Simulated scan of single mutants.
Amino acid sequence: MKLSTFVAAAALLLTTACQHKLAVQTPNDPPNTGTTNPSSSLTPAPTSTATNIPVPDAAVATFDTTARPPWLQAKIQKLQAEEKSNPPTQIFRYRYRNQVVYYETGPCCDQFTNLYDSRGRLLCHPDGGLTGKGDGNCPDFTKERTNEMLVWQDPR
């Protein structure tokens, strides 16, 4: 179909629709009648109350900033100086094997995540990689971790 034919068909369709004075109702509009199916009293009419669930603003999220070790502060500054990753990098604090650990999410797709001890030494890569199971050095991390606390998330 030629472009000019397509444009003419679209214009005719729009003109026809406008002439018929079509009205669009959303689920939040009050109903025209008491039920959605006039022959049945079992089907309730839609309400005019909004049914959207608000999503928290990431920029307003509160983080656990208590007792961030210096190495972690430096790591966060380095991440902020780099190009933004998609999805945004997050750092969580957990208890794992009777110690405080820090879990850094990976940028995307087959990239390893990092698990650090409280002094900033890399312990393992709990997940990610080609298999999604990390490097195999802490296969119980997902099951055994406790006390999850979001420490930082890239706000960009």
Results as ranks from 00 to 15, higher is better:
Lys78Arg: 04
Asn32Ser: 15
Thr65Ser: 12
Ala45Tyr: 00
Ala81Val: 02
Leu14Thr: 05
Pro27Val: 00
Asn28Glu: 15
Pro27Asp: 06
Ile53Lys: 03
Thr36Arg: 15
Pro44Glu: 10
Lys84Gly: 05
Leu13Tyr: 02
Pro88Gly: 06
Val55Lys: 14
Ile91Gly: 02
Thr35Cys: 10
Pro88Cys: 07
Asp64Tyr: 05
Val24Ala: 13
Ala17Cys: 07
Phe63Ile: 06
Arg68Asp: 02
Thr51Trp: 00
Phe92Leu: 04
Thr35Pro: 02
Thr43Asp: 15
Ala59Trp: 02
Trp71Val: 01
Pro46Phe: 00
Leu14Tyr: 11
Gln80Met: 06
Arg93Pro: 00
Leu22Arg: 05
Gln73Lys: 13
Thr51Cys: 14
Phe92Ile: 00
Ala50Thr: 13
Ser41Pro: 12
Ala45Lys: 02
Pro70His: 01
Asn28Met: 15
Ala59Ser: 12
Lys21Ala: 13
Thr66Ala: 14
Ala11Arg: 08
Arg97Asp: 14
Thr47His: 11
Lys21Pro: 05
Leu79His: 07
Thr36Tyr: 09
Leu13His: 03
Ala10Ile: 01
Glu82Thr: 10
Asp29Val: 05
Ser39Glu: 12
Val55Ser: 13
Ile76Ala: 04
Pro44Ile: 09
Asn32Phe: 13
Val60Asn: 14
Ser40Met: 07
Glu83Phe: 07
Gln77Ala: 06
Ser85Trp: 00
Arg95Gly: 05
Pro30Ser: 08
Thr47Phe: 09
Ser41Val: 10
Pro27Asn: 10
Ala58Pro: 12
Ala50Tyr: 07
Arg93Tyr: 01
Leu79Ser: 03
Lys78His: 07
Ala45Gln: 03
Ser85Ile: 01
Thr15Gly: 01
Ser40Gly: 00
